[in-house]
Design a protein around this nucleic acid. Sequence first.
DNA 1: CACTCTGCATTTAATTATTTTGTACCGCCT
DNA 2: AGGCGGTACAAAATAATTAAATGCAGAGTG
Lengths: 300, 300
Amino acid sequence: MARTDDRFRVTFNAVLDECSTLKPGDLLASELALAAQFDVSRTVIRSILERLNMIGVVQWRGRQKALMRMPRPGEWLPVSASQVSPEELERQFLYWILRFDVPPGTPLNVAELARQFRVSVYGLQEFLASLSRFGLVKRRPKNGWELVGFTSDFAIELSDFRMMIELNAISQLIALPDNHQIWHKIEELDDAHRALAAAIDERFHDFSLLDERFHLAIGSVTHNRFVAEFQKVISLIFHYHYQWDKKDERERNAAAIDEHLRLIAALKSRDEACALAAARDHLRTSKQTLLSSLRINALS
Amino acid sequence: MARTDDRFRVTFNAVLDECSTLKPGDLLASELALAAQFDVSRTVIRSILERLNMIGVVQWRGRQKALMRMPRPGEWLPVSASQVSPEELERQFLYWILRFDVPPGTPLNVAELARQFRVSVYGLQEFLASLSRFGLVKRRPKNGWELVGFTSDFAIELSDFRMMIELNAISQLIALPDNHQIWHKIEELDDAHRALAAAIDERFHDFSLLDERFHLAIGSVTHNRFVAEFQKVISLIFHYHYQWDKKDERERNAAAIDEHLRLIAALKSRDEACALAAARDHLRTSKQTLLSSLRINALS
DNA sequence: CACTCTGCATTTAATTATTTTGTACCGCCT
DNA sequence: AGGCGGTACAAAATAATTAAATGCAGAGTG
C-alpha cells in the first residue's frame, strides 16, 4: 500500500455519524455539498458513497442518494493512531536529545527515530531539515543526518542570541504606552513572583514554568516572526534544563526570582537603563546555569 | 532502479584513471586501501573490481588483483549531470521569487519547481522545510507548500531583525582590540568606499557588491551560528533588491556610500554611540528602500 | 602469533513505483 | 442556462526496491 486511507476512514465514519441523524428514505446532499461539509475532495466522498451503496446503507442511483437503513454499530471503520503534530514532534525530539543526553556528533538513524516518534520517515526528514537552520543537526556529506547537539559552543551562542533578542524586546517594551495590555500582564507576573517567593520552600519547582511565562511575555511585544521562531526553541531548551538540573535548585530559583523582580520593578518605573542592566544580569546567570548543567551532564 | 549508481560510476572512472598510470602485471592495493583512497565503502570497490574483472582489465583472484591490460577509451562510464548544491538551490529559489515577483500565497508546485531547479523532488522538499523556519514558505494543512513571500510585513520584520543583529555586532566590534584583523578590513573598506564615491557616476552599479561585503564584515565579528545563518539570507535578499530596483539607483547608492563612510569613521574613532546612530540611520534607509521597491514591483 | 584482508550478512538510506487524493474539464439533466 | 455528476489527468505520500555502508568472523600472511 502506498498512501494510507486514513482520510477515507475518518471521513467515512463522519458520514456514518451524519447518516445516524437522518431517517431511512432521506436523501443525502450532493457530492459537492458533502465534500465541502467534510472538507475533503469529491473523490473521497465518491468512494464513501460507493462503499455505503455496497453495504446497503445508501442506494446510489446517479444523483439520487437515498438512505436505506440506519448504519449498524460494526460498520464504523477502525482508524489508525492519530498523527503527531510538528510542534509535538519538536517537543519530543528536543526532549529526547536533552533527556538522554545524546552526545554531539551522533549519527541520527532516521528510520528508527521515525518509529520512536511515531511519525513517517518523510515527516522526520522534513523536521530535521528545518532544524538544520538552527545548526542543531546537519546533513552529512554523503548520507544521513548528524546531531550537532548541545555543545557548550552551541549553548554560548544560543544564550548570546537570546540576550540580544531579549534586550531588544525590553527596549521596545519600555516604549509602549501605559494602556498597552503588556503592563497588565507584568502586574500579574509581579504578583505571581511575589507569591512564589513567599512560598519558595515548598513551591520552588514551580519556578520553571513561571520563568517561561515571564520570558514569553517579554518576547510577545516584538511581533516579529523570526524572534518568535527562535523564542519557541530557546524557551524549550532553557525550560527543560531548568527542570532537570537539580543541583542547588531552590537557591538558584530563589535568586532568579529576585532577578526577575528587579527587572519587573525597573520595567514598571520605565527606567530603560536599569531594566537592561537587570535583564543582562539575569540572562548572564541563566547562561551560566545552562553551561554548568551541560558540564554536569557531560561528567555523569 | 532505486538509487542512482552515480557514486559507482564516478569512482569506477577514477579507478580507471588510476589504472592508466600503472602497467600490465602491476598489483592493485587491497580493497580497504582502495576504499580509503577513493573515499567510498568497500562495497563500491568490490563492485568495481567485479566489473573490471568482467571486462578483462583486471584479473581478480581472492586478494590477487593484477592489471591485465590498459583500459580502453570507451570503457569510462558516462556520469549524469552534477548535483545542485543546497547553497546553489537557495540562491536559485530566492532569485526566482524575487526576479519573477511571485506573489504571496502562491501554491508551490513541488514537481515542477524540482524540474526547473534540476533537483529531486525530495531535495526540494527538504529545502522548503528548512525555509519554513524563516516563515518564507509554509506547509499547507493537507497538501503542498505555499509561498508566504515578501509581503511588506515580512520585509519590515526582516529589516527590524537585521537592525537588531547588526547594532549588536557593531557594539561588539567597537570593543575589539586594536590588533584585531577587523580593523584592517575596515581600512580596506574605507578605501574601497572612497574610491567608489570618487567614480560614482560610472561605477554606481558596483555598490551592491560593496554593500554586501561591508555588512558581511560587520557580521563576521559575532561568531554566532544563528546570526550567520540569518545574515546569509538577509544579504541575499537585500543584495538582489539593490540590483533590481533601478529607480534613482545612482542617488541612492551615493547616499548609501555616505552613510557607510559615516559609520566607518565612527567605528575607527571607537565612538559607540555615534556608530550605532549612523548604523541605525543607514539601516532605516535600507528598510525604506526595500519597502518601496516592493511597492513598485507590486504595481508593475 | 598477531595483524590485516576478504567474504558474507545485515543495516541503512535514496529513489522509484504505486496507490490514494485533488482538481479541472466536459457533457448531461433539470 | 446553470449546476451537477462522470471522467481523466496530475500530484503527493508511502511502500518497495536496490545501492551503499558497515559489522563480524574466519582465512591468510608476514
